[in-house]
Design a protein around this nucleic acid. Sequence first.
DNA 1: GTCTATAGGGGGATAGAC
DNA 2: GTCTATCCCCCTATAGAC
Lengths: 203, 203
Amino acid sequence: MASRNNSKIAEQTTEERIKEAARKVFQKKGFAATRTRDIAEEAGINLALLNYYFRSKEKLFEIIMLETLFGFMQNLAFIMNDDKSTLQTKVELIASGYIDFIIRNPNVPLFMLSEMRANSGGLLKKLPIKQLVSNSAFLKQHRKAVEEGKIAEPHPLHFLMNLLGLIVFPFIGKPMLQGISGVSDNQFKKIDDAKEEVYPGLD
Amino acid sequence: MASRNNSKIAEQTTEERIKEAARKVFQKKGFAATRTRDIAEEAGINLALLNYYFRSKEKLFEIIMLETLFGFMQNLAFIMNDDKSTLQTKVELIASGYIDFIIRNPNVPLFMLSEMRANSGGLLKKLPIKQLVSNSAFLKQHRKAVEEGKIAEPHPLHFLMNLLGLIVFPFIGKPMLQGISGVSDNQFKKIDDAKEEVYPGLD
DNA sequence: GTCTATAGGGGGATAGAC
DNA sequence: GTCTATCCCCCTATAGAC
């Protein structure tokens, strides 16, 4: 907080440069396969400096991981808590928002999923996410839609699981599915663009 | 093939014991985080013996990876090529088959997805999968169902993506979704058990 | 085939000069 | 704050005895 850099011209502080490099390399290769030397090189600084700022690889990783998780989830929480929007709109916003997000950060989903297992998800406890969702507008609207028979999944988590799976899986499964089917990158993109209406038939 | 062990009493050969241990550790921790010492210990043999049989960590890993991929896909190919079963049945078989498979091998999906990216999916070329699917009964039935307006996804890969996402994501996303929602393991299991009809409304 | 012992290298972290 | 040089542990792979 105290050291936030607000200058418009991106005169990045060294600390920021290192974090940005770490984000890039960690998200691409995962914790175990990443060498601190790679991060230093990517940041254009020396290996010693990395430890000067962040003390250890683990510490740096935890920071990146928490920021990544938070960035991924705050979007979700924001949409879910909007009293004004309908459930249908929420679903569309979540879908389009995350599709945009993943296109900008293609490595994030698999990174999070992989590293959470390795870390047994303990880091999630450090994030104030649960409360944000626990009595959201989304939950009430979902319950109502279930009562009216508009939604097949009776449990909100079940509903959320299916929705996220439909959004995320095409991206993380891409190499495998391409391998099976033999379609080109261009073809794949067209197919995925067609995933506009992720959850049709809500209203 | 030549060295298949068919004895009912599981008198495993040493090579098999090492491979089984490697499978377990690699699938759980991934290539980079796995130490050959862990595999040796898990197999109850010495580290040197591992190299005697498999020459290097990379070689051993590639074998495990290929076998895992093949095991995962041959099930799919078999179901998709059955002329007798309907599309509806195929979907049900794929879903139930993979759910069973994942319950028995909970680490496999994330293992494959993670390690394929690291390896840029090059290993898939070594598997004779594409041909198996390329003119399968599934493809014809899917085309027909699209023409009859029974399926929303016009491209078979799109259809397959959604289906696999619905099956696989609950498992790999479990730690994250539990973190968000705070439900217990028992609750989660109940929710997931409810995913019987993955693709309703086909016929 | 299986072991013990060790070579050899890589990578995280630090000392210390500037 | 930033660098160079270096320490030291850990891990893979191999040599060599049995």
